[in-house]
C-alpha cells in the first residue's frame, strides 16, 4: 500500500502521538494514507477511538518489537 506521509511518534507519551497525527493528517488530501509508529501502549486504544471519532479509517494496526504501527486513511 502506498503511504503518503510517515509520522515517527516513537517514545512520545500521550497526548503527543495523537496531537502530531492530527496535524499530519491535516496536511493530507482525502483518501491519502498516513503511517504512524508509536511506542506508547495506550495509543492502540486511543488511535482506534480517535479515528472512529473523526471519521478517518484505521486500515491496519500491527505490532513489531514493541512498536505499534498504524495505517490511517484520511476521510
Amino acid at each position: 500500500m502506498k503511504v503518503d506521509k510517515f509520522l515517527d511518534a516513537k517514545s512520545l507519551a500521550c497526548p503527543m502521538p495523537i496531537v502530531r497525527a492530527k496535524k499530519a493528517i491535516q496536511e493530507l488530501e482525502e483518501g491519502q494514507i498516513l503511517e504512524v509508529h508509536t511506542t506508547d501502549k495506550g495509543s492502540k486504544n486511543d488511535f482506534a477511538a480517535w479515528t472512529k471519532s473523526t471519521g478517518h479509517e484505521l486500515i491496519e494496526v500491527t505490532e513489531e518489537n514493541d512498536v505499534i504501527q498504524f495505517l490511517i486513511k484520511k476521510h
Binding site: 497526548p15 495523537i18 471519532s53
Partner: peptide
C-alpha cells in the same frame, strides 16, 4: 463523571 476523550478537545 463526564467522559470526553482528550482528542476531541484538541
Amino acid at each position: 463523571h463526564l467522559n470526553i476523550p482528550y482528542f476531541d478537545l484538541l
